[in-house]
Design a protein around this nucleic acid. Structure first.
Lengths: 165, 165
DNA sequence: TATCGTTACGTTATAATATAACAAAATGAT
DNA sequence: ATCATTTTGTTATATTATAACGTAACGATA
Protein backbone atom coordinates (compact mmCIF):
# COMPACT_ATOMS: atom_id res chain seq x y z
CA UNK A 1 0.00 0.00 0.00
CA UNK A 2 1.19 3.44 -0.84
CA UNK A 3 1.19 5.94 1.93
CA UNK A 4 0.32 9.09 0.05
CA UNK A 5 0.89 11.26 3.05
CA UNK A 6 4.51 10.35 2.88
CA UNK A 7 5.10 11.46 -0.63
CA UNK A 8 8.38 13.25 -0.46
CA UNK A 9 7.62 16.12 -2.74
CA UNK A 10 5.09 18.67 -3.77
CA UNK A 11 5.06 17.60 -7.38
CA UNK A 12 2.66 14.74 -6.95
CA UNK A 13 0.59 16.30 -4.21
CA UNK A 14 -1.94 19.06 -4.05
CA UNK A 15 -0.69 22.01 -2.11
CA UNK A 16 -1.14 25.72 -1.70
CA UNK A 17 0.76 26.64 -4.77
CA UNK A 18 0.67 30.40 -4.34
CA UNK A 19 2.06 30.13 -0.89
CA UNK A 20 4.72 27.67 -1.94
CA UNK A 21 5.78 29.89 -4.80
CA UNK A 22 5.97 32.94 -2.59
CA UNK A 23 8.02 31.08 -0.04
CA UNK A 24 10.57 29.76 -2.49
CA UNK A 25 10.94 33.22 -3.96
CA UNK A 26 11.52 34.66 -0.52
CA UNK A 27 14.03 31.98 0.25
CA UNK A 28 15.83 32.76 -2.98
CA UNK A 29 15.92 36.43 -2.12
CA UNK A 30 17.29 35.79 1.31
CA UNK A 31 19.82 33.32 0.07
CA UNK A 32 21.14 35.83 -2.46
CA UNK A 33 21.23 38.58 0.13
CA UNK A 34 23.20 36.38 2.48
CA UNK A 35 25.67 35.52 -0.23
CA UNK A 36 25.91 39.12 -1.46
CA UNK A 37 24.64 38.08 -4.86
CA UNK A 38 22.21 39.93 -7.05
CA UNK A 39 18.87 38.41 -7.76
CA UNK A 40 18.35 40.83 -10.62
CA UNK A 41 14.98 41.44 -12.27
CA UNK A 42 15.87 39.07 -15.08
CA UNK A 43 16.97 36.31 -12.80
CA UNK A 44 13.95 36.78 -10.62
CA UNK A 45 11.72 36.78 -13.68
CA UNK A 46 13.14 33.49 -14.87
CA UNK A 47 12.79 31.99 -11.44
CA UNK A 48 9.18 33.19 -11.24
CA UNK A 49 8.36 31.64 -14.59
CA UNK A 50 9.82 28.38 -13.40
CA UNK A 51 8.03 28.55 -10.07
CA UNK A 52 4.73 28.99 -11.82
CA UNK A 53 4.67 25.32 -12.64
CA UNK A 54 7.07 23.49 -10.32
CA UNK A 55 7.72 21.40 -13.36
CA UNK A 56 10.68 20.98 -15.66
CA UNK A 57 10.89 23.49 -18.46
CA UNK A 58 13.17 23.65 -21.43
CA UNK A 59 15.26 26.77 -21.85
CA UNK A 60 13.27 27.64 -24.92
CA UNK A 61 9.98 27.26 -23.07
CA UNK A 62 11.21 29.84 -20.61
CA UNK A 63 12.40 31.98 -23.45
CA UNK A 64 8.97 31.84 -25.05
CA UNK A 65 7.37 32.96 -21.81
CA UNK A 66 9.78 35.84 -21.50
CA UNK A 67 8.96 36.94 -24.98
CA UNK A 68 5.26 36.68 -24.31
CA UNK A 69 5.68 38.83 -21.21
CA UNK A 70 7.80 41.63 -22.60
CA UNK A 71 5.88 41.92 -25.80
CA UNK A 72 8.17 44.65 -27.04
CA UNK A 73 11.70 43.32 -26.60
CA UNK A 74 12.91 40.26 -28.41
CA UNK A 75 14.82 38.27 -25.84
CA UNK A 76 17.51 35.87 -27.05
CA UNK A 77 18.70 32.48 -25.75
CA UNK A 78 21.88 33.62 -23.98
CA UNK A 79 19.81 35.71 -21.59
CA UNK A 80 17.89 32.67 -20.47
CA UNK A 81 20.92 30.43 -20.28
CA UNK A 82 22.77 32.96 -18.17
CA UNK A 83 19.94 33.26 -15.71
CA UNK A 84 19.71 29.47 -15.55
CA UNK A 85 23.44 29.23 -14.99
CA UNK A 86 23.23 31.64 -12.09
CA UNK A 87 20.24 29.93 -10.52
CA UNK A 88 21.91 26.54 -10.83
CA UNK A 89 25.17 27.76 -9.35
CA UNK A 90 23.23 28.95 -6.32
CA UNK A 91 21.24 25.75 -6.02
CA UNK A 92 17.94 27.42 -6.70
CA UNK A 93 17.17 25.23 -9.65
CA UNK A 94 18.36 21.90 -11.01
CA UNK A 95 19.01 20.56 -14.42
CA UNK A 96 17.24 17.38 -15.43
CA UNK A 97 19.89 15.90 -17.65
CA UNK A 98 17.80 13.25 -19.28
CA UNK A 99 15.28 15.85 -20.43
CA UNK A 100 17.45 18.85 -21.19
CA UNK A 101 15.20 20.68 -18.84
CA UNK A 102 15.33 22.73 -15.68
CA UNK A 103 13.29 22.65 -12.53
CA UNK A 104 13.11 24.70 -9.36
CA UNK A 105 14.80 23.21 -6.34
CA UNK A 106 12.32 21.97 -3.79
CA UNK A 107 14.47 22.83 -0.81
CA UNK A 108 17.08 25.40 -1.65
CA UNK A 109 19.92 25.60 0.79
CA UNK A 110 20.00 21.89 1.46
CA UNK A 111 23.22 20.60 0.07
CA UNK A 112 22.30 17.03 -0.75
CA UNK A 113 22.72 15.81 -4.29
CA UNK A 114 19.59 16.26 -6.29
CA UNK A 115 17.59 13.17 -7.00
CA UNK A 116 14.45 12.96 -9.04
CA UNK A 117 11.56 10.72 -9.77
CA UNK A 118 10.41 11.51 -13.27
CA UNK A 119 7.08 10.21 -14.48
CA UNK A 120 7.17 9.47 -18.18
CA UNK A 121 3.38 9.63 -18.33
CA UNK A 122 2.48 12.86 -16.65
CA UNK A 123 5.95 14.31 -16.98
CA UNK A 124 5.83 15.51 -13.43
CA UNK A 125 9.05 15.44 -11.51
CA UNK A 126 9.44 14.91 -7.81
CA UNK A 127 12.63 15.85 -6.11
CA UNK A 128 13.48 13.47 -3.32
CA UNK A 129 15.71 14.14 -0.39
CA UNK A 130 16.45 10.65 0.80
CA UNK A 131 20.04 9.56 0.81
CA UNK A 132 21.16 7.97 -2.43
CA UNK A 133 21.28 4.70 -0.59
CA UNK A 134 17.58 4.30 -0.37
CA UNK A 135 16.28 6.06 -3.42
CA UNK A 136 15.20 2.99 -5.29
CA UNK A 137 13.61 1.56 -2.17
CA UNK A 138 11.83 4.85 -1.69
CA UNK A 139 10.52 4.80 -5.25
CA UNK A 140 9.25 1.31 -4.70
CA UNK A 141 7.66 2.41 -1.49
CA UNK A 142 5.76 5.13 -3.27
CA UNK A 143 4.44 2.81 -5.89
CA UNK A 144 6.56 4.54 -8.46
CA UNK A 145 7.28 1.99 -11.16
CA UNK A 146 10.88 2.50 -12.10
CA UNK A 147 11.47 2.36 -15.76
CA UNK A 148 14.89 3.70 -16.19
CA UNK A 149 17.29 5.09 -13.68
CA UNK A 150 20.17 7.36 -14.47
CA UNK A 151 22.82 7.66 -11.84
CA UNK A 152 25.64 9.90 -12.89
CA UNK A 153 28.31 10.90 -10.50
CA UNK A 154 30.81 13.41 -11.74
CA UNK A 155 34.04 14.15 -9.96
CA UNK A 156 37.74 13.54 -10.16
CA UNK A 157 39.18 10.09 -10.17
CA UNK A 158 41.96 9.10 -7.80
CA UNK A 159 44.57 9.18 -10.53
CA UNK A 160 43.72 12.68 -11.67
CA UNK A 161 43.73 13.89 -8.09
CA UNK A 162 47.33 12.76 -7.84
CA UNK A 163 48.37 14.48 -11.06
CA UNK A 164 46.67 17.75 -10.18
CA UNK A 165 47.79 20.24 -7.55
CA UNK B 1 43.75 3.90 1.13
CA UNK B 2 42.49 3.05 -2.27
CA UNK B 3 42.63 -0.55 -3.27
CA UNK B 4 43.39 -0.22 -6.96
CA UNK B 5 42.93 -3.87 -7.57
CA UNK B 6 39.29 -3.46 -6.72
CA UNK B 7 38.53 -0.81 -9.23
CA UNK B 8 35.21 -1.84 -10.63
CA UNK B 9 35.79 -1.07 -14.23
CA UNK B 10 38.21 -1.18 -17.05
CA UNK B 11 38.10 2.52 -17.70
CA UNK B 12 40.60 3.50 -15.06
CA UNK B 13 42.75 0.42 -15.32
CA UNK B 14 45.21 -0.88 -17.82
CA UNK B 15 43.98 -3.98 -19.53
CA UNK B 16 44.37 -6.03 -22.67
CA UNK B 17 42.29 -3.77 -24.78
CA UNK B 18 42.28 -5.86 -27.95
CA UNK B 19 41.08 -8.86 -26.09
CA UNK B 20 38.45 -6.89 -24.24
CA UNK B 21 37.19 -5.39 -27.46
CA UNK B 22 37.01 -8.74 -29.16
CA UNK B 23 35.16 -10.23 -26.26
CA UNK B 24 32.53 -7.53 -26.08
CA UNK B 25 31.99 -7.80 -29.81
CA UNK B 26 31.54 -11.54 -29.51
CA UNK B 27 29.13 -11.09 -26.66
CA UNK B 28 27.16 -8.62 -28.73
CA UNK B 29 27.03 -11.07 -31.62
CA UNK B 30 25.84 -13.87 -29.42
CA UNK B 31 23.31 -11.72 -27.67
CA UNK B 32 21.81 -10.65 -30.98
CA UNK B 33 21.79 -14.21 -32.27
CA UNK B 34 19.98 -15.37 -29.16
CA UNK B 35 17.40 -12.63 -29.49
CA UNK B 36 17.02 -13.18 -33.24
CA UNK B 37 18.13 -9.65 -33.92
CA UNK B 38 20.38 -8.44 -36.66
CA UNK B 39 23.74 -7.00 -35.79
CA UNK B 40 24.04 -5.54 -39.26
CA UNK B 41 27.29 -4.23 -40.69
CA UNK B 42 26.35 -0.67 -39.84
CA UNK B 43 25.43 -1.51 -36.28
CA UNK B 44 28.54 -3.55 -35.84
CA UNK B 45 30.61 -0.78 -37.34
CA UNK B 46 29.23 1.74 -34.89
CA UNK B 47 29.80 -0.63 -32.01
CA UNK B 48 33.35 -1.25 -33.16
CA UNK B 49 34.05 2.46 -33.34
CA UNK B 50 32.76 2.83 -29.83
CA UNK B 51 34.70 -0.14 -28.55
CA UNK B 52 37.89 1.31 -29.90
CA UNK B 53 38.02 3.70 -26.98
CA UNK B 54 35.79 2.40 -24.18
CA UNK B 55 35.06 6.03 -23.67
CA UNK B 56 32.00 8.18 -24.20
CA UNK B 57 31.59 9.52 -27.70
CA UNK B 58 29.15 12.01 -29.09
CA UNK B 59 26.95 10.91 -31.95
CA UNK B 60 28.77 13.31 -34.21
CA UNK B 61 32.15 11.94 -33.19
CA UNK B 62 30.96 8.56 -34.31
CA UNK B 63 29.58 10.07 -37.46
CA UNK B 64 32.92 11.66 -38.22
CA UNK B 65 34.67 8.33 -37.83
CA UNK B 66 32.18 6.67 -40.11
CA UNK B 67 32.80 9.29 -42.72
CA UNK B 68 36.54 8.93 -42.36
CA UNK B 69 36.21 5.19 -42.85
CA UNK B 70 33.92 5.09 -45.86
CA UNK B 71 35.68 7.86 -47.66
CA UNK B 72 33.24 7.66 -50.55
CA UNK B 73 29.78 7.76 -49.00
CA UNK B 74 28.60 10.74 -47.02
CA UNK B 75 26.85 9.30 -44.01
CA UNK B 76 24.17 11.36 -42.31
CA UNK B 77 23.17 11.71 -38.64
CA UNK B 78 20.05 9.51 -38.70
CA UNK B 79 22.17 6.52 -39.56
CA UNK B 80 24.23 6.94 -36.45
CA UNK B 81 21.28 7.68 -34.23
CA UNK B 82 19.46 4.60 -35.44
CA UNK B 83 22.40 2.38 -34.74
CA UNK B 84 22.74 3.95 -31.30
CA UNK B 85 19.06 3.43 -30.66
CA UNK B 86 19.34 -0.23 -31.52
CA UNK B 87 22.45 -0.75 -29.42
CA UNK B 88 20.86 1.00 -26.47
CA UNK B 89 17.65 -0.97 -26.74
CA UNK B 90 19.69 -4.14 -26.51
CA UNK B 91 21.77 -2.88 -23.63
CA UNK B 92 25.01 -2.95 -25.58
CA UNK B 93 25.68 0.70 -24.98
CA UNK B 94 24.52 3.38 -22.57
CA UNK B 95 23.75 7.00 -22.89
CA UNK B 96 25.54 9.40 -20.59
CA UNK B 97 22.83 11.97 -20.18
CA UNK B 98 24.92 14.67 -18.64
CA UNK B 99 27.30 14.60 -21.59
CA UNK B 100 25.04 13.88 -24.51
CA UNK B 101 27.33 11.00 -25.16
CA UNK B 102 27.30 7.26 -25.57
CA UNK B 103 29.49 4.54 -24.16
CA UNK B 104 29.76 0.80 -24.57
CA UNK B 105 28.26 -1.26 -21.80
CA UNK B 106 30.88 -2.91 -19.65
CA UNK B 107 28.86 -6.02 -18.98
CA UNK B 108 26.14 -6.51 -21.54
CA UNK B 109 23.44 -8.85 -20.48
CA UNK B 110 23.48 -7.76 -16.87
CA UNK B 111 20.22 -6.04 -16.20
CA UNK B 112 21.20 -3.67 -13.43
CA UNK B 113 20.64 0.03 -13.91
CA UNK B 114 23.66 1.68 -15.37
CA UNK B 115 25.71 3.79 -13.02
CA UNK B 116 28.75 5.79 -13.89
CA UNK B 117 31.67 7.54 -12.36
CA UNK B 118 32.63 10.35 -14.68
CA UNK B 119 35.91 12.12 -14.21
CA UNK B 120 35.67 15.74 -15.21
CA UNK B 121 39.44 15.92 -15.58
CA UNK B 122 40.34 12.99 -17.76
CA UNK B 123 36.83 12.52 -19.06
CA UNK B 124 37.08 8.82 -18.52
CA UNK B 125 33.96 7.05 -17.47
CA UNK B 126 33.76 3.94 -15.31
CA UNK B 127 30.63 1.92 -15.24
CA UNK B 128 29.99 0.47 -11.81
CA UNK B 129 27.86 -2.50 -11.00
CA UNK B 130 27.28 -2.03 -7.32
CA UNK B 131 23.72 -1.66 -6.19
CA UNK B 132 22.48 1.92 -6.21
CA UNK B 133 22.52 1.77 -2.42
CA UNK B 134 26.23 1.88 -2.13
CA UNK B 135 27.36 3.84 -5.12
CA UNK B 136 28.45 6.92 -3.26
CA UNK B 137 30.21 4.82 -0.67
CA UNK B 138 31.92 2.96 -3.48
CA UNK B 139 33.05 6.20 -5.08
CA UNK B 140 34.47 7.31 -1.77
CA UNK B 141 36.17 3.99 -1.40
CA UNK B 142 37.89 4.40 -4.71
CA UNK B 143 39.16 7.82 -3.88
CA UNK B 144 36.88 9.29 -6.48
CA UNK B 145 36.11 12.83 -5.36
CA UNK B 146 32.46 13.34 -6.09
CA UNK B 147 31.70 16.67 -7.58
CA UNK B 148 28.23 16.34 -8.83
CA UNK B 149 25.92 13.43 -8.82
CA UNK B 150 22.94 13.02 -11.07
CA UNK B 151 20.41 10.46 -10.05
CA UNK B 152 17.48 10.30 -12.38
CA UNK B 153 14.89 7.64 -12.08
CA UNK B 154 12.28 7.56 -14.76
CA UNK B 155 9.11 5.53 -14.48
CA UNK B 156 5.42 5.88 -13.88
CA UNK B 157 4.07 7.42 -10.72
CA UNK B 158 1.43 5.67 -8.67
CA UNK B 159 -1.29 8.00 -9.84
CA UNK B 160 -0.60 7.46 -13.53
CA UNK B 161 -0.48 3.74 -12.99
CA UNK B 162 -4.05 3.93 -11.73
CA UNK B 163 -5.26 5.99 -14.66
CA UNK B 164 -3.63 3.80 -17.25
CA UNK B 165 -4.70 0.31 -18.24
C1' DT C 1 29.38 62.96 -7.59
C1' DA C 2 32.80 61.67 -11.20
C1' DT C 3 35.57 57.82 -12.29
C1' DC C 4 36.51 53.22 -12.97
C1' DG C 5 36.66 48.33 -12.54
C1' DT C 6 33.35 44.69 -12.45
C1' DT C 7 29.22 42.34 -13.29
C1' DA C 8 25.15 41.63 -15.82
C1' DC C 9 22.56 42.27 -19.96
C1' DG C 10 21.72 42.60 -24.90
C1' DT C 11 22.62 41.16 -29.80
C1' DT C 12 24.15 38.58 -33.64
C1' DA C 13 25.65 34.67 -35.39
C1' DT C 14 26.53 29.97 -35.25
C1' DA C 15 27.67 25.46 -33.09
C1' DA C 16 26.16 21.04 -31.43
C1' DT C 17 22.72 17.65 -30.85
C1' DA C 18 18.69 15.27 -32.60
C1' DT C 19 14.58 13.96 -35.37
C1' DA C 20 10.76 14.01 -39.07
C1' DA C 21 9.49 12.39 -43.30
C1' DC C 22 9.92 9.86 -47.13
C1' DA C 23 12.45 6.85 -50.74
C1' DA C 24 15.25 2.87 -51.76
C1' DA C 25 17.32 -1.38 -50.68
C1' DA C 26 18.04 -5.61 -48.19
C1' DT C 27 16.05 -9.44 -45.68
C1' DG C 28 13.53 -13.44 -44.87
C1' DA C 29 9.38 -15.89 -44.96
C1' DT C 30 6.31 -18.11 -47.89
C1' DA D 1 9.50 -14.97 -57.41
C1' DT D 2 6.63 -12.31 -54.48
C1' DC D 3 5.52 -9.68 -50.67
C1' DA D 4 5.59 -7.86 -46.00
C1' DT D 5 8.93 -6.18 -42.92
C1' DT D 6 13.04 -4.21 -41.47
C1' DT D 7 16.95 -1.54 -42.28
C1' DT D 8 19.38 1.94 -44.60
C1' DG D 9 19.87 6.17 -47.14
C1' DT D 10 18.64 11.16 -48.03
C1' DT D 11 17.00 15.73 -47.39
C1' DA D 12 15.54 18.99 -44.63
C1' DT D 13 14.78 20.95 -40.31
C1' DA D 14 13.99 21.10 -35.26
C1' DT D 15 15.96 21.67 -30.77
C1' DT D 16 19.37 22.86 -27.50
C1' DA D 17 23.37 25.62 -26.39
C1' DT D 18 27.33 28.80 -26.75
C1' DA D 19 30.93 32.16 -28.74
C1' DA D 20 32.03 36.70 -29.33
C1' DC D 21 31.54 41.23 -28.72
C1' DG D 22 29.32 45.61 -27.41
C1' DT D 23 26.44 48.26 -23.99
C1' DA D 24 24.47 49.32 -19.68
C1' DA D 25 24.03 49.05 -14.70
C1' DC D 26 26.22 48.63 -10.32
C1' DG D 27 28.98 49.68 -6.52
C1' DA D 28 33.17 50.94 -4.55
C1' DT D 29 36.24 54.63 -3.95
C1' DA D 30 38.55 59.21 -4.58
Amino acid sequence: MIDKTKFPDIAFRKHDHRRCQRQLLTEASQLCATRKLRLTPRRRQVLEIMLASHQPMGAYDILARLNRADSAERIAPPIVYRALEFLMAEGLIHRIESRNAFITCAHPGHESAAQFLICRDCERVAEVETSAQSLLAEADNLGFAVDHSVVEITGVCAECQKHAG
